[in-house]
Amino acid sequence: MTEQSDGGGDNFVATLLWLLLGFVAGFALSTKVVIALEIPLGEQSTLNERLLIVALFVGPAFLLVSISNHLERWAARGNFSWARYWTAMFSVAVTVLTLLGMNSVDDLIALADAWKAYNEQRPR
């Protein structure tokens, strides 16, 4: 079998998948922290608060892509199969989203509604 048909090969799509899942997790994490800490939005927030929000938003995506790259190298060397790579990556993604309380699309919609309500109650 070729590497392409074996599950490896072009990693661009896989990287985009892990970035997307990471940004979903980052949205959940940063939104929950902003609402819980009542961080002011816009010009009222400090530089530290802005850096915290950006780090929480981008951090999970960076983490998932890093894990993916590490496991991908293992699979390319033959330490385990590509099926095990995908199983491990989906297990990590499900664990991250579950720990953040994102068990379904409804949870994501509820979080977006909470963000909208928080944004509307804050003074401009």
Rank of each mutant, 00 (worst) to 15 (best):
T95D: 06
R77G: 01
V65F: 05
G8E: 14
L52R: 04
S68K: 13
T31C: 06
N69L: 09
V34G: 03
L108H: 01
T87M: 04
T46H: 02
W86Y: 08
F80T: 11
G101C: 08
L71V: 04
A14S: 10
P60R: 06
E49S: 13
V92Y: 07
H70E: 03
L71I: 06
V65Y: 07
L20P: 00
E49A: 12
E38A: 12
R84W: 00
D113E: 15
F23H: 13
L100W: 02
Q121R: 15
V54I: 15
M1A: 09
G42Q: 05
R124L: 01
A117S: 03
A93K: 03
V33I: 10
V24C: 10
P40F: 07
F80P: 00
N103Y: 06
D113P: 00
F62M: 14
P60S: 13
L71D: 09
V34H: 01
A28D: 05
R124I: 03
T98Y: 02
A114F: 00
L20V: 05
L100Y: 04
F23R: 12
G26A: 06
R73I: 04
L16I: 15
V96K: 03
R124P: 00
Y118I: 08
T46N: 07
A93C: 08
T95C: 08
I35H: 03
D107P: 01
P40R: 11
Q121G: 04
A93D: 09
S66P: 00
R122Q: 14
V24A: 10
A114Q: 15
L41E: 02
Q4F: 06
N48V: 14
Y118D: 02
A55F: 06
A110M: 11
E72P: 00
P40L: 11
V94L: 12
E43N: 09
S5A: 09
F27V: 07
A75I: 10
D10N: 01
S91T: 14
V96H: 03
A75M: 09
E3Y: 06
A93N: 15
F12C: 09
S104G: 13
N11K: 09
F27K: 05
S45C: 08
S81N: 12
T98M: 06
F23N: 11
Y85Q: 08
V33L: 07
L37R: 15
L19Q: 11
F12E: 06
R84E: 04
L41C: 05
K32S: 03
L99A: 15
Q121E: 08
L99E: 10
D6E: 13
L29K: 12
I67D: 02
R73W: 01
A83P: 00
I53M: 12
V92D: 02
S5H: 05
V65S: 14
S104C: 08
W74R: 14
G8V: 13
F57A: 13
L47Q: 15
A114R: 12
